[in-house]
Design a protein around this nucleic acid. Sequence first.
DNA 1: TGTGAAAGTTGACGGGCCGTCAACTTGAGC
DNA 2: GCTCAAGTTGACGGCCCGTCAACTTTCACA
Lengths: 226, 226
Amino acid sequence: MPLQEELCVEAQLRRPMEQRVAGKRAQSKEQNRRVILDAARRVFAELGYGATTVRDIIRATPLASGTFYNYFRSKEEVFQAMRDETALALRPLLREARLKCETAEAFVAETFRTFFAYVVENRANLPKVNRTDAVHVRVDTAEVLAGFEELRADLEAAIGRGLFAPIDAEYLTASMVGIAFELADVVQRRELPDAEAAARFATTLVMGGLAALPKQKDQTPATGPV
Amino acid sequence: MPLQEELCVEAQLRRPMEQRVAGKRAQSKEQNRRVILDAARRVFAELGYGATTVRDIIRATPLASGTFYNYFRSKEEVFQAMRDETALALRPLLREARLKCETAEAFVAETFRTFFAYVVENRANLPKVNRTDAVHVRVDTAEVLAGFEELRADLEAAIGRGLFAPIDAEYLTASMVGIAFELADVVQRRELPDAEAAARFATTLVMGGLAALPKQKDQTPATGPV
DNA sequence: TGTGAAAGTTGACGGGCCGTCAACTTGAGC
DNA sequence: GCTCAAGTTGACGGCCCGTCAACTTTCACA
């Protein structure tokens, strides 16, 4: 029956570029997910994470309550999805920045520069901050933790290539992550956030430490190789 | 009327050491608070922070639901109280450790040593970790933030005394805090937590950075003094 | 010791949020 | 067209929420 095919073609001709192959089904599914995530972002920003309920998110949406649960199982899961989006956007940038580095200094500097630049540019989706009273919450989803693992793997590879002296990559990763998140917080609170300055500070701190760390290792061989 | 006084004395003689002056009222108030906090610790550990409800905590207690609300307004407040207890226990230790230091190295080393030692010794009350699925939560209460401020004030005082070169104390505080919490996490996950090793790593990293930071500042005077 | 008042406890209650599910609507394929 | 699977809807039973009137315990004073 050529008529049906023609209908299909006609539909595609009307909207030539976007959504060509995707059926209406898949389209609206993607759209609903987007609608929920956007509503959630607004509501979390308005009420704070703790005070927000699933119903608040649903109410900020034209959808019915049952539909919400077709997409997410809880507000926690929505929040994780939001953080995952950030992590998935940031991780390739970080990898790319690090891979082209030929020196330890560049490796560290590019990692911090990319991170702080992203954080400052996307203040709205800020990955970390949430205030309920004077309380401060940080959530690391699986995607975020995977980003940490990438940094660690890249560090170990760099150590293997002789870029870094052999040090405990797990400890160094943790330190860089801690510095990055805590400094990001400070930077964002300042009235004129300066991503470059934060990156410079973090880089200098870590590079100075890297110069000192291998010597320290020799002083205490009791622990043995990890 | 001496008889009333006698009754009071008799009561004290029966339990000679403890609770001498405190009336029954104040006693049971303190005890109820303790009972709730202990129950909460158990329940949070069992169910995780997110899944725990106020009713779960109440059920782990011989008290009625109304009584709970005489002491705390929500599970968030209970959790904050728990963290505050940790912060209030740790802060004097940290201050004492830092105050007697005559060198920058000692200042940094003692701060980290004290912190990691406390964290490893009190794994049960561990200040940071909470898992819901693969999610990782950290909460900084007002008391905890006050601890950060103390570190910053001590750092600035040390800079004033010439112990440290003049650097941005806010950035350095944030960095030390970030390193401390993130490393604490790594250390606690290891099967043989070595507080000393973590303290040594953190100290070396920061001291190496401190040697490098003042030079960096000269390179970029654009920002000006803070 | 007895008594009145204040402090503190209790658990039932109305209100709202939770996640589910049977009935319905929409899209895909023939 | 027609059928069936996929997806949506909102009402529903169950639970948690924070409150509060009734009750019990402690305290201060005579």
